[in-house]
Write a protein that binds this DNA or RNA. Structure first.
Lengths: 267, 267
DNA sequence: GCAAATTTGTTCGTATGTATT
DNA sequence: CAATACATACGAACAAATTTG
């Protein structure tokens, strides 16, 4: 019991939440009530609450109170493409299809297209010199109306110059960009590599996903590099997903059909 | 300037770190110095520091000061097995091999073997009724001496009864458990599925990985379910990795040899 | 090895501001 | 508009960890 007071209070709150005595969505006693209950000052009680906030167990709403966080129903993205569709089909199409299969309603914004200079990681993954012009296509996606992911695809600008000019259009590309590149330039994506990382969200991401500004909810950042038949990177897709509502599935070899995780709930 | 004072101070500190004016590993001014610099109280300065801590930019060390965090060199785990080795070879062997390839020194503890009752997710993934006896084999791994992952594999107890009794031994299984099961029982792992999730670490994990106790550094939890030739789950491996020093690579189709990310550094 | 100085950690009190009901 | 509840801010004192002389 050498632990500081605010930690002991926090541990007691945590125990009540873990045991289900304080159910998800329920309101905790107010700061003033807790102050009396634990014979502590209001500041100490607030320190205890900050601790359990940091553990991701509760959240405070100004003027309302402190509430036990509700677990979200995670959406599972399968990174290993269905062989039937070839390696890494259309992102948007796949996405809408997969989400529907989990009986949830997908939607997405129109692509926002920009010309940019490739820097750092983008140039590196695409195998281009720094500051080469690239086409950037950005899209935001929702599931059942809640923001789910932000995606930006980068293509070497040379592809548009060589005839794939619709890459620069701010419209969805029917059948997907990969199929379009195969049709117009004979450029086939024969494989891709995904690099999965986790970091704190930046301000734009926190705003879009409605995450707390202090970065306590991390985001996945997935870098997908697609390769053509010559082994050259043909595109890089960077997708950001909040870790509190997303999971990934990777299947290798023979995996029985109803994948072990489907429309599930986290422990 | 409607922003509260502690946020303005925090933003100023953040800017100095992002711009490199405060380099990684360097010490920030002390709380008393910052208090003078910003004409704020010590408590307000401390609130500002707590904010940048939450953003993962700095850390405080009692008695020493506040320091800009050093980025870790991430270790990249490839989840899609090399086809040459068959689907999902030996975990330990693969691990040591892969780590060596990234020119870093792997090590791991001896397995800690226990008999347990399958509950919740474990029973579900293994396709067993709740409270069925399972063999649990737990191991901890290090890279260059720093703790890197905690892994627990669960096998239906029936496998040991049917002749694979070394599953219950607290020793490394030469050539890997998957190979051992193939040799003794003719049970071949023909495929596996990985489910990648992120959550806050529990106390044991925080202690082992030396993570801050308040859960601001999340962990990956990867569930790997292995299937035999009949499509039956033969084992479940749950591995926990801190997100601040781990990344995952998934390759599908033809991906050129020097994988795009190798011994790299995060942006 | 110890004592002093430095620096962050904990706890209280108090006052006022802002958001919501 | 009033009441309630969390947010911001300051001041103060003592504790604990670490470094330094």
């Amino acid at each position: 019991m050498a632990d500081p007071l605010y930690r002991r209070i926090a541990d007691d709150l945590r125990e009540q939440i873990d045991s289900g005595k304080l159910a998800a969505g329920k309101q905790l006693p107010t700061e003033l009530e807790l102050k009396d209950k634990y014979n502590a000052s209001r500041n100490t009680v607030r320190d205890a609450i900050k601790w359990v906030i940091s553990l991701g167990l509760v959240e405070t709403r100004p003027g309302q109170g402190t509430f036990v966080v509700e677990k979200r129903n995670p959406y599972v993205t399968t990174l290993t493409a269905d062989p039937a569709k070839g390696a890494g089909g259309d992102e948007v199409f796949d996405y809408n299809l997969e989400v529907s299969k989990q009986h949830r309603q997908p939607s997405n914004t129109d692509p926002q297209v920009e010309m940019q200079k490739a820097t750092g990681k983008i140039a590196e993954q695409l195998g281009l010199p720094e500051n080469t012009q690239v086409i950037s296509r950005h899209q935001r996606r929702f599931i059942d109306g809640t923001p789910w992911s932000m995606q930006t695809s980068f293509y070497p600008r040379g592809l548009a110059a060589r005839g794939a000019d619709r890459l620069s259009d701010a419209d969805d590309i029917e059948g997907g960009a990969v199929q379009y590149l195969a049709d117009t330039l004979g450029l086939k994506q024969v494989g891709y590599g995904d690099l999965i990382t986790v970091r704190t969200p930046d301000m734009r991401e926190a705003e879009f996903f409605k995450l707390p500004e202090d970065g306590r909810v991390a985001v996945f950042e997935v870098f997908r590099t697609g390769f053509d038949q010559t082994g050259t990177p043909m595109r890089l897709t960077v997708t950001v997903f909040p870790t509190d509502r997303n999971q990934f599935q990777v299947n290798v070899g023979d995996v029985p059909q109803p994948a072990p995780s489907e429309g599930n709930q986290q422990s």
